[in-house]
Amino acid sequence: MVPASVHLPRILRIGAGASETLVDTLRELDLARPLLVTDPYLAQQGFAQRLLAPLVQAGIRCPVFADCVPDPTTDSVAACLAMLQEGDFDCLVALGGGSSLDTAKAAAVLARHGGVMRDYAVPATVASGLPVIAIPTTAGTGAEVTRAAVITDTVTQEKMLCMGLGLVPVAALVDFELTMSMPRRLTADTGLDTLCHALEAFVSRKAHPFTDSIALTALAGISQHLRTACDDPGNRVAREAMMLAATQGGIAFANASVTLIHGMSRPLGALFHVPHGLSNAMLLPEVTAWSVSHAPQRYAQCARVMGLAQAGDSDAAACEQLVTGLRQLTVDLDVPSPADWGIAEEDWCASLDTMAEQALASGSPANNPRIADAADIVTLYRRIWAG
C-alpha cells in the first residue's frame, strides 16, 4: 500500500475571534510586508478595514487589492499580480470566499515562478509561491486548507484546476463570526459545496483512513446544521458548525480528492457563470444516484452518518435513502434547475460535448467510484436538464 500524503497549513486557528490573531500570525511566521487580497463587497462593508486596524496599531503597512471577482479569471489574477509586483511584499493575506483565496494563491505562485496560469493547470504540479494567510468569510469552499485553485481562462472560458503543495496556505484563520451576515442563497450554496467535498472525499478512489474520519464528521455536522444556518442566520451554533464542517471538508478533499460532481460542475461555471457551490448542488443528487451502485457500503455509511438511514437498514436501502435525502435537501434549499437559473436549452445542448470534455480534463472524474466516459457525462447532463 502506498502511504497516504497529508498536507495542511502550518498554522490553523479555528473559532470565534481567530481572524483577530493576524498580527500574531505574521510575527510567528516572520512576515512583515503583507498585501491584503479581497473583493469589492468586503472592502465596502468594512470587513477589510476591521481586519487591518490591528495591523495599523502594530505599525504594519498593508496595502489592499480589492478587485477580486467571482470565479476568478486569468485577467483578475493578472491585476492582483501587477499590484503584487509593484511593491516589496513578502506575503499575501486573503480575505473572502474561495474566489479571493484562489486569486491570492494564484498570484503568489506567479510572483515567484513567472509564466501564465495555464502552465500550472493539471497535470502540472505547483511549487511553493509567496506565503498566503487565508481568512475565509464563507463556510463552504475549504480553500483555506486546500492545495488547489480554480482559475478561468479568459480566452477559452475553461475553468483550470491547479494543484500542488505550493497552493496550501501557510496559515488559515477560520473565524465563523465572519460568516454571520451571509445571505441565505450563499449559505445554502456554500454549505452544499461543503457537503459535496465531504461526500466525494469519502467515496473517492483516493480515500484513506485519515480523510475518512474527517469527512464523516463533516457530513454529520452539515446534516444537522445546514438547514438551521439557512433559516436562522443569527444562530451562532449552526454558523460555527458549518464553518468547522467547511474546513473539515476542505481537509478531506484536499487529501483524498473530489470526484465526478466537481468535474462536471466546473464547465457550468466557466460556460454559464453558475456559482461553484450552486453548480455542485445542481449535480449532487443525479450524479450520486448514478454512482452509488459502485460503492454501496461507502455511500450507505454516509447515509447513516447523516441520519438518512438506520444502522439496521441494508446498504441498498441506505443508498436509496441517501439519494432521496439529497434530492429533498436541494428542494428545501431552493436549488434551481439549470433552466430556472436562466440557461437556455439550446445553449445547454450545444455545449454538452464541450462540457464533457472539460469535465474529463479536470481529472476529478477518474476518482469516482463509477468511472464515466464522455458519453456517460453527456447523458448525465441531459438527465440533469430534464430534472
Rank of each mutant, 00 (worst) to 15 (best):
V2K: 14
I11P: 02
R13G: 07
A18K: 03
S19C: 12
R27A: 15
R27D: 14
R50K: 15
L52F: 09
V56H: 14
Q57S: 15
Q57M: 13
I60S: 01
C62P: 07
V64H: 02
C68P: 12
D71L: 07
P72H: 07
V77Q: 02
D88Q: 14
C91R: 00
A94F: 05
A94C: 08
G96Q: 00
K105Y: 06
R118Y: 08
A127I: 06
L130Q: 02
P136M: 05
T137Q: 05
E144L: 08
E144D: 14
R147D: 09
T152D: 06
P169H: 13
V170M: 03
A172R: 02
V174G: 02
S181D: 14
D193H: 05
A201D: 08
V203L: 04
V203N: 00
T217C: 10
L219Y: 09
A220P: 02
G221T: 07
L226M: 11
L226C: 12
A229S: 14
C230E: 05
P233N: 07
V237S: 14
R239E: 09
E240I: 03
A241R: 01
M243E: 03
L244S: 08
A246V: 10
A252R: 01
A252C: 11
N255Q: 13
S257V: 11
F272D: 07
V274C: 14
L278S: 03
T288A: 02
H294L: 12
R304W: 09
Q310M: 11
D313T: 10
Q321L: 12
L329K: 06
V331P: 03
V335M: 05
V335S: 01
W341K: 06
L360K: 08
A372H: 00
D373P: 07
G387R: 10
